[in-house]
């Protein structure tokens, strides 16, 4: 059974943890929670080597941990996370400015979150202060799998990825 790297598309062995071509991490950074998007256990994903079949519809919410806001991102799609500041030509889809983003070192275009029916992926867009998932630093411009309840750190701003049911 082979899988394709979500970043460069090159075929990989099912047990590979990193892509041999571009180095993208192929599994969730830390399997802290057994449910991934769609309610299929992460370990099942590793066992079968394919992405889980969607079970019902799910949607992602960003939970700003210190201040408690829940920002729903409805449905699949790509979301650029960052902050809006004056004179900026490309605007992020999710503006973290109201949550002290500037003070926390969030870049204007900080990271990209991609949601498909069955999985969530995160890519740091070369931000000044970096992105961490469960305290593990992401290599910029590489795509990582994101799981339910993972804590993402944009600069110094902690945000939790939470999957809700449609």
């Amino acid at each position: 059974m082979k899988i394709n790297c979500p970043n460069c598309g090159v075929e990989q062995e099912q047990n590979d943890l990193f892509c041999s071509n571009c180095g993208t991490k192929l599994m969730s950074t830390t399997p802290t929670d057994s449910t991934s998007m769609g309610g299929v256990p992460t370990n099942k994903l590793e066992a079968s080597g394919t992405l889980p079949v969607p079970v019902g519809k799910a949607r992602l919410n960003l939970h700003i941990i210190r201040s408690g806001q829940i920002l729903p991102l409805t449905g699949p799609g790509e979301y650029i996370v960052g902050r809006v500041s004056e004179g900026q030509s490309i605007l992020p889809d999710v503006d973290l400015e109201p949550y002290a983003a500037y003070e926390s070192g969030v870049s204007r275009l900080h990271a990209r979150i991609r949601i498909e029916d069955h999985a969530m992926w995160i890519t740091d867009l070369g931000s000044a202060n970096g992105t961490r998932v469960n305290n593990e630093k992401l290599v910029p411009h590489r795509t990582y799998l994101l799981s339910n309840k993972d804590v993402v750190r944009f600069g110094r701003l902690n945000v939790q990825a939470l999957v809700g049911q449609e």
């Binding site: 949607r59 939970h63 408690g68 829940i70 939790q160 939470l162 049911q165 449609e166």
Partner: peptide
Amino acid sequence: PQVPSQTLINAIG
């Protein structure tokens, strides 16, 4: 970090 109630997450979504 505490995970907010699923009921609330769903309702807000």
